[in-house]
C-alpha cells in the first residue's frame, strides 16, 4: 500500500506563487497541473524495486483528497502500480493530518491484506512529515521513517534509515509502515507500455459516506487563521568589477570591509 498525495507543483517559481487571503488557500498558477507529491513517487519506486528484486508484490496506491487530476494520479499506475484507490470528497478539502490519518486508517483496515504501507517522507504542500507516522501509531504497527533502501527478508524487512550524518540498518517485522526519502534514487519514468496499461485502468473511488465517515469525524485540531507570503525586505548589493574575475576580488574585499570574513 503506497500513500500518495496530490499537491500543487512545488517547482512553481516563487514569483508565481499566489495566495488568496480571503480563503486562506493557494491559487494554482494557470496551466500548471497538480502533481503526485515527489517523495510519494519515491515510495512507489521503493515498491517497484521489491518487485524487480523478485518478490511477488501487488502495489495499491491510496490517495485522500478532492479535485483529483487523473492524468497526474495515473502516473503511479504508469510506473507499474497495480491499483489506484481514491477517497474523493469535497469534505476532504481542508482536513488536517489527524483527519487524514483517520481516513487512511479506515481504508487500510477495510481493504484488508497488506504487508507494507509506504509513504513519502513529507508532502510538499503543508510540509508536516507526520501522516505515515501517525498512521503507524493508530494501526499499532512498527514504523521506520526516512528509508533509503529496503529489502524483504524471510521474516520481515531490513532497511537503511537516513540519519544526520549517515544511516542506520534496521530490521523490523511486517506488516510495517515506512516513509521513503529521495536518497532512495530517482523514481523511474513510465514507459510507453506502462502508460498504455494505465490508461485502461480505472481508479476505485470512495466517498466519505462509503467509508462510514462524516465530516464531523474530521474536525481539525488546529484552526488555520492566516496564510500569507512573508515579506522580504532584503536588498542585494551587487558587486560589479571590470570583469567577472575582478568582481570576485572586489567581493572578497567588500566582505572583509563588513568584517564578515
Amino acid at each position: 500500500m503506497v500513500l500518495a498525495k496530490q499537491v500543487p507543483d512545488p517547482e512553481t517559481p516563487p514569483s508565481q506563487f499566489k495566495i488568496d487571503e480571503s480563503t486562506n488557500s493557494v491559487v494554482p498558477p494557470n496551466g500548471v497541473p497538480p502533481v503526485v507529491n515527489g517523495f510519494d513517487l519515491n515510495a512507489v519506486e521503493a515498491a517497484l524495486l521489491l518487485r524487480d528484486a523478485g518478490a511477488d508484490v501487488e502495489i495499491t496506491v491510496l490517495s485522500v483528497g478532492t479535485d483529483f487530476v487523473m492524468d497526474s494520479m495515473k502516473k503511479t499506475l504508469a510506473m507499474g502500480a497495480d491499483r489506484l484507490v481514491l477517497v474523493d470528497d469535497d469534505g476532504l478539502d481542508k482536513i488536517d493530518s489527524a483527519a487524514t490519518v483517520k481516513v487512511l486508517a479506515t481504508v487500510i483496515e477495510k481493504d484488508g491484506a497488506f504487508d507494507l504501507v509506504l509513504g513519502g517522507r513529507q508532502a510538499s504542500d503543508w510540509d508536516q512529515a507526520h501522516v505515515p507516522l501517525g498512521l503507524a501509531e493508530v494501526l499499532g504497527l512498527p514504523l521506520v521513517s526516512l528509508v533509503q533502501k529496503l529489502e524483504l527478508t524471510d521474516n520481515g524487512i531490513t532497511v537503511q534509515r537516513v540519519i544526520t550524518d549517515g544511516y542506520q540498518e534496521i530490521t523490523a517485522p511486517i506488516p510495517a509502515v515506512l516513509t521513503v526519502t529521495n536518497e532512495l534514487g530517482e523514481p523511474r519514468y513510465p514507459n510507453l507500455r506502462g502508460i498504455m496499461q494505465a490508461s485502461r485502468k480505472k481508479p476505485e473511488v470512495f466517498s466519505l459516506a462509503d467509508l462510514g465517515l462524516s465530516s464531523g469525524d474530521l474536525a481539525p485540531k488546529l484552526k488555520l487563521t492566516k496564510l500569507y507570503v512573508p515579506e522580504s525586505n532584503q536588498q542585494v548589493e551587487l558587486i560589479e568589477g571590470e570583469n567577472e574575475a575582478d568582481s570576485g576580488k572586489k567581493l572578497a574585499l567588500r566582505l572583509r570591509e563588513e568584517k564578515l570574513i
Partner: peptide
C-alpha cells in the same frame, strides 16, 4: 508551509 513560500498561522 509550501517549502517556505508561505507562512501559516494556526490556533491550537
Amino acid at each position: 508551509v509550501y517549502g517556505g513560500s508561505a507562512l501559516a498561522e494556526f490556533i491550537v
